[in-house]
Design a protein around this nucleic acid. Structure first.
Length: 175
DNA sequence: TGCACGATCTCG
DNA sequence: GAGATCGTGCAT
């Protein structure tokens, strides 16, 4: 069996599903990052969070379609990057179909925990915002042979979203 | 045109 | 426990 058989690139149909199906499936998948100098870095996703539509008060799309959230209204597989606290970039993958704004925040890979640290490790900045995991030659995702098990917990840093949304167990953590 | 506030991290 | 640091959304 060749390496190509073991490592298959995730395609559109993987992302064109509800975020609550995509997010747990992303745990254990591999992010491949190819740098300008040709170096390739492969990391396994260990923690993610789901943000689900305009009704979800923790989701940025709860403020409607704005300049920032516009990409979430596109088809799954696009990349959503934003700057938080004036210094940390957050890496997200858009899910679902057009006009259904959802995204998965990558909170951890391998032993690197924290969304800001992940972006720093992979050298993700605003230039990745709105790009596609299917056409980019510097970042894409690959499937893995083994399926990872996970546990769930509440999402982090969204106290403002109110009790209901704050308590959704939409964080998925690799065991 | 101004302002308050983050899907955080690091240091003390 | 607090400061760093700036783009965004909303009020003015």
């Amino acid at each position: 069996m060749t390496l190509d058989t073991l490592k298959t690139k995730l395609q559109q149909d993987f992302f064109t599903r509800d975020v609550l199906d995509v997010a747990p499936d992303l745990v254990g998948k591999t992010i491949v990052r190819k740098f300008a100098n040709g170096q390739v870095k492969r990391v396994v996703i260990s923690e993610v969070e789901a943000y689900r539509g305009e009704d979800d008060l923790a989701c940025h799309a709860s403020k409607g379609r704005t300049t920032r959230t516009d990409i979430m209204y596109h088809e799954g597989g696009h990349i959503y990057v934003y700057l938080i606290y004036g210094m940390h970039y957050m890496l997200n993958f858009v899910t679902s179909i057009e006009n259904n704004p959802q995204a998965v925040l990558i909170r951890g890979v391998d032993n690197v925990l924290g969304p800001g640290r992940v972006a720093k490790l992979l050298e993700i900045d605003k230039s990745f915002h709105r790009s596609s995991l299917f056409t980019s030659d510097s970042i894409w995702l690959e499937d893995n042979v083994d399926v990872s098990s996970y546990r769930t917990d509440v999402r982090v840093g969204i106290d403002y979203a109110g009790d209901y949304w704050k308590n959704r167990p939409w964080r998925f953590i690799k065991i």
